[in-house]
């Protein structure tokens, strides 16, 4: 036969090199994004008791929504419940780092913000946290993407990204959707 063992081995080695090259390119692209653009899978290990969320320090109703913290960081807090988000709209500034924090008192939910890489699960007992920077202004849809019950398809919130000049929180550092403040 024309194909010798040696020729088969040579062909397999060539393919192994091609596969190694592809793996190197993919790993390089992932490292490039992680190191230069800070694109990483959201990772946070923080607990929140689902039974006492309403009396907790952080996720009480009055503390939900967007707030500029004392250190200048913009943090938006939201609770996902069957079958809505509280609040169902948050305002965030474009071009500035924003921290989104979620938790839930009932079942597993999940969110994504359309047109961005924001995507995380929201698991009872844990706080899901995502750091991001929105670049485009406008209303972005944020649906629940983990089936959570019969009303799952109705569970959607809005992330309102406004230009930095229009992001004018009050003296308490808070800003909500529909809120208008004079320039």
């Amino acid at each position: 036969m024309a194909i010798s063992e040696r020729a088969i081995l040579k062909s397999e080695l060539r393919w192994a090199l091609v596969v190694a090259g592809i793996v190197a390119v993919i790993l390089g692209a992932i490292l490039f994004a992680a190191l230069t653009m800070h694109i990483n899978p959201p990772s946070n290990r923080e607990f929140a008791d689902p039974k006492t969320l309403h009396t907790s320090d952080e996720f009480t109703e009055a503390n939900l929504g967007t707030r500029v913290e004392a250190d200048g960081k913009v943090v938006a807090r939201m609770i996902a419940t069957q079958f809505n988000f509280v609040p169902d709209c948050i305002v965030v500034p474009a071009g500035r780092e924003v921290t989104l924090r979620f938790t839930t008192p009932d079942v597993i939910h999940g969110i994504l913000v359309a047109g961005t890489n924001v995507n995380t699960m929201i698991v009872p007992g844990y706080v899901a946290q995502v750091h991001t920077r929105f670049t485009r202004t406008g209303d972005l849809l944020m649906p629940c993407h983990e089936y959570c019950g019969l009303g799952h398809s109705q569970m959607v919130a809005t992330v309102r990204v406004v230009p930095p000049a229009q992001f004018r929180p009050g003296p308490d550092g808070r800003m909500a959707c529909g809120q208008r403040r004079p320039a």
């Binding site: 091609v18 390119v25 692209a29 990483n40 959201p42 961005t116 890489n117 991001t132």
Partner: peptide, 24 residues
């Protein structure tokens, strides 16, 4: 076949994934 697969992957990565911005 492998080349087309890589072109598709790199296209999605550089034209869709990266422009969607930072997250972590």
């Amino acid at each position: 076949a492998v080349g087309l697969l890589m072109v598709g992957w790199l296209g999605m990565y550089f034209l869709v994934f990266l422009p969607r911005g930072t997250v972590g």
